[in-house]
Simulated scan of single mutants.
Amino acid sequence: MQFTKEEKKMLAWLRQQHEGWRSVRVIILTCSILCALFAALDIFRTGFGVHPFFLILIAGYGASYTLGSWSGRPEVSLLLKLVEAQQPLRDDQPGDQVD
């Protein structure tokens, strides 16, 4: 199977997004932990109120989202592995030249 330049560009973008998730998940998890710590400090200082409640919600959502999809989307990983096994994605392949 031969891919067009647009399809190769789309696959390269998909690979970049998939690899970028590694750094994004650490950032989201760190922010979630910080939100939980700020909520705990706010509860100890002023008691349980609206502000700590929203911080706990944000921390819980961020942590569950990150931990639930820690390894990324499996369908994207499988697709990229299948494409790489089929053919390497290089722009200098002989079949890409148009006369």
Rank of each mutant, 00 (worst) to 15 (best):
K81P: 06
S77C: 02
A40D: 08
A12G: 10
H51E: 13
D92F: 07
L37W: 09
Q2P: 06
R73F: 00
K81F: 00
H51G: 09
D96Q: 08
D96F: 00
F38R: 14
A12Q: 11
H18L: 09
P52H: 09
L34G: 08
M10D: 04
G49S: 05
Q97F: 02
A40R: 13
A39T: 11
A40S: 07
D99H: 10
F44H: 10
D92V: 08
F44Q: 14
I33C: 01
T46L: 00
A59D: 02
A12I: 15
R73Y: 01
L57H: 12
R15L: 11
C31E: 01
V50L: 09
I43P: 07
D91Y: 13
W21K: 12
F54P: 08
F44I: 10
L29Q: 07
C35K: 06
M10H: 05
F44K: 14
T46V: 00
R25N: 05
Y65F: 07
I58T: 15
A85E: 15
Q87D: 14
I56V: 06
L89V: 08
Q16T: 10
F48T: 11
Q93K: 15
Q2A: 14
S77D: 07
C31H: 06
L11I: 13
P88A: 14
R25L: 00
V83K: 10
E6Y: 02
G49E: 08
S23V: 12
L14D: 03
W13V: 03
L29V: 04
W13A: 02
D92K: 13
I58L: 10
K9N: 13
T30I: 14
L37N: 15
I33R: 05
S32Q: 15
K9G: 09
L89K: 09
D96V: 05
V24A: 02
F3R: 08
H18Y: 03
H18N: 12
D99E: 11
D91M: 10
K81L: 00
S69G: 06
H51K: 13
F38Q: 09
F44C: 07
S69T: 14
A40C: 02
D91Q: 12
E75Q: 11
R15S: 06
G68C: 01
E84V: 06
F48E: 14
Y65C: 04
L67M: 04
L78Y: 13
V83T: 11
I58N: 13
T66K: 13
S23C: 06
D96H: 13
D96N: 09
F54G: 05
G68H: 11
D99V: 04
F38A: 04
Y65D: 10
L34S: 11
F53T: 15
R22S: 05
H18K: 14
Q93V: 03
M10S: 06
V76I: 11
I56H: 05
Q86G: 10
S69Y: 06
W70Q: 13
S64G: 07
F53Q: 11
K9E: 08
A40I: 09
A40Q: 12
L11F: 04
V26Q: 05
G72Y: 03
I33L: 01
D91L: 08
F38M: 06
D99T: 09
I27M: 09
A59W: 00
R73W: 01
D91S: 09
D91K: 14
E6L: 01
R73S: 02
D99R: 15
Q16P: 03
S23Y: 07
A63S: 11
D99K: 15
K8A: 02
A63Y: 03
S69C: 03
G72F: 02
F38Y: 13
L37I: 08
P74K: 10
